[in-house]
Amino acid sequence: MAAANKLAGIVGKINALPEFARSRALTLFFGRVVPFTGTAGMRIESLDEERCVISIANKRRVQNHIGGVHAVASLLLAESATGFLVGLNVPDDKIPVIKTVHAEYTRRAKGDMTVEATLTAEQRERIRTEEKGDVSVPVIIRDGEGKEPIEIEMIWAWTPKRR
């Protein structure tokens, strides 16, 4: 399948690299395009048009007052993973924007955090063909114990670029 947009083309070339180099190349690329992701120390584990996995180590620079990954850092992971997915699928003549974020912190997180966001074939088709719209992107955040300390909903919209 041809790339949906320029970003998808670049990510496709990165994903053609040997497996050992992909994560580092994706992380470096997005760290330059979206500098805050690099500042926070996020690592893009995998990314394609259907799924994105990003992790962050529980290091001092992203910790809260009780030694866990800060709430805002966990939201950054979720926003980035869902945004990268929508960005890979939205045509070049549209712009993706975050519309709604809802997070429910259900338990204390332990250790590093990993987020996985996915889009179904139907969602990807809507993003690629509808002039404007919005979509709730499924996202799961897991801590170092594999538990889900946050229930989160990310709704992304897309609209035509202004000329």
Rank of each mutant, 00 (worst) to 15 (best):
C52Q: 01
P91S: 03
I98P: 05
A71D: 04
V69Y: 04
H70A: 04
A71Q: 08
S80C: 13
R60S: 06
V72A: 14
I66A: 07
H70K: 03
N89M: 08
E104W: 05
P96C: 14
T100A: 13
V97R: 13
E50N: 14
E79R: 08
L75D: 06
K99N: 14
L75M: 15
L76Q: 13
L76N: 13
I54D: 04
V69F: 06
R51I: 05
N58T: 05
L47C: 07
E79C: 11
K99G: 15
T82I: 07
G68W: 01
K59M: 05
Q63H: 11
R60G: 00
V101Y: 09
R61P: 14
D92N: 12
L88P: 01
L76I: 09
S46E: 09
L77H: 05
T100E: 15
K94W: 12
E49Y: 00
R51H: 05
D48T: 05
E50L: 08
L77P: 10
L76R: 01
S74Y: 01
D48V: 04
G67W: 13
A78G: 04
H65Q: 15
I95T: 10
E104C: 07
D92V: 08
L47E: 01
S55T: 10
Q63C: 13
S74F: 02
S74M: 10
A73V: 03
N89R: 06
V72C: 14
N89H: 09
K94Y: 12
G87M: 01
P91F: 02
I95W: 13
L75I: 13
I54L: 11
L76H: 08
G83V: 14
R61V: 05
H70P: 10
V72I: 14
V72Q: 11
D92M: 09
S80K: 12
L47I: 05
N89D: 12
V86A: 08
A78Y: 01
C52K: 00
L75R: 06
L75C: 15
G67F: 12
L76V: 08
I95M: 15
L88C: 09
V62L: 07
I66F: 11
G67P: 14
F84S: 11
E79I: 08
I98R: 10
I66E: 03
